[in-house]
Nucleic acid binder design. Structure first.
Lengths: 227, 227
DNA sequence: TACCGCTTTGATTACCTATTGATAAGCAAT
DNA sequence: ATTGCTTATCAATAGGTAATCAAAGCGGTA
């Protein structure tokens, strides 16, 4: 259960301080003197978290991170000496999880490591329950649509039809397939479909959106690009 | 109560880092992958604060802010990658409340968010057990509701139903889901639900609150925005 | 037991939506 | 331009849903 932390720093004193603090916090610590050692050790051991100094000769922390990230999502915490060094640590290319600037308090380092480690087992954040198509959004739970942030109230049937369109944005729906998809295959007149289309168009036009639904002559209707 | 934060960033890793940090700080977090999603989500949910990445494809954070500001004063905190972007943000017409430059420490972000939130509502941390939605408050321990400070006495069933609504504002509840959520899945007539809705509406109307619960024809009922 | 307040329900009315046919407008090929 | 077909529009109707109310059922209390 006690976590295995791999620490890479070229400064012996720092290594000692960190090692002492982490072991005191019940973690298993492995120390690397440079990036090369860290990468090699990582390849053959199961590590729960890496602590990487950015400023190391030869292979610096960022490069180590890049290398690690090719094969692993193991959390990485960076140590940096100056603020300007830490460009994009938390950003896209690198993929760090947090950073600490030197000088740091060992206690803070431990605290931050614990935070990151807890995250691994934490629940994923709530998923946004909406379908998106350009400026159009379908809010399933709220049973409502928005266009460019404007709420557009739809009746149950209109909502079902629009939802059908958004779920297959580029597809052309014949009136028959609308009957099957938005209703339960009940037969209704083609005029009924037209009528609902008209109402939907009207409501969106009122919100400033012309041309949400396009007519494909002789075939049916489809959702426009509507960006 | 626990605040609802909407975070928009196109970088998955950043979203994860932020989401974890904020949830750990007791906030409710919703993640958006782009500005469009954020705007549309915002339209139908009560959000206490937005975190917007400035650098997003399509609709960037500044544009999102501009859009939001047309209708709302909800605090906005920007994430920016470069310092030179920041001058414009704070100075000009945009209307952001703070900014954080990447890379940032999650802890710093939380701290700044808390500062902003406290500025908006300087409230004592005493009363914990209540749900809030605009002027409506559900006092769980007292088993009572208040609207705009006025106490509204509710029966047990009415209280259970209203609580269900407040826990998911703007969500549409079918009569069935009300039975499941507010009762214990016991079958009762649809008229019973109507009746309780009527009583709740009546009591709030007496307190000066019309349109607390909206009817979604053919679907069910939902709590109005009601700010 | 009788009372009282809350819950439940059926009946009635009011309201809203869906549907449709008629008519006008639009499109495409001759 | 004409013709034949497809789509748009509209208003009226049918059908379904919600609001309201009164009365009955239920459970606790005096």
């Amino acid at each position: 259960m006690n976590k295995h932390i791999l620490v890479a720093d070229d400064d012996l004193h720092i290594r000692e301080v960190i090692s002492f603090a982490l072991e005191k916090a019940g973690m298993q610590v492995t120390l690397a003197e440079d990036g090369r050692q860290a990468i090699d050790y990582f390849a053959l051991h199961s590590i729960d978290l890496l602590v990487l100094d950015i400023n190391m000769p030869e292979l610096d922390g960022l490069e180590v991170c890049r290398e690690i990230r090719k094969t692993s999502d193991t959390p990485i915490l960076f140590l940096s000496s100056r603020d300007d060094e830490i460009d994009r640590i938390l950003g896209l290319e690198i993929g760090g999880d947090d950073y600490v600037t030197k000088p740091f308090s060992p206690r803070e380092l431990v605290a931050r490591i614990n935070v990151i480690l807890k995250r691994v087992v934490a629940k994923p954040a709530a998923v946004m329950n909406q379908l998106q198509h350009g400026k159009l959004a379908i809010h399933l739970e709220q049973h409502a649509a928005t266009w460019n942030g404007l709420v557009i109230s739809l009746t149950a049937t209109e909502f079902a039809m629009l939802q059908l369109f958004v779920r297959s944005p580029q597809r052309v729906f014949s009136r028959d397939s609308i009957m099957t998809g938005a209703y339960n295959n009940i037969y209704i007149s083609d005029r009924t479909i037209d009528s609902h289309i008209r109402h939907i168009r009207q409501k969106f036009a009122d919100a400033g959106c012309d041309a949400l639904i396009e007519t494909v002559h002789g075939v049916g209707y489809k959702l426009a690009l509507c960006q």
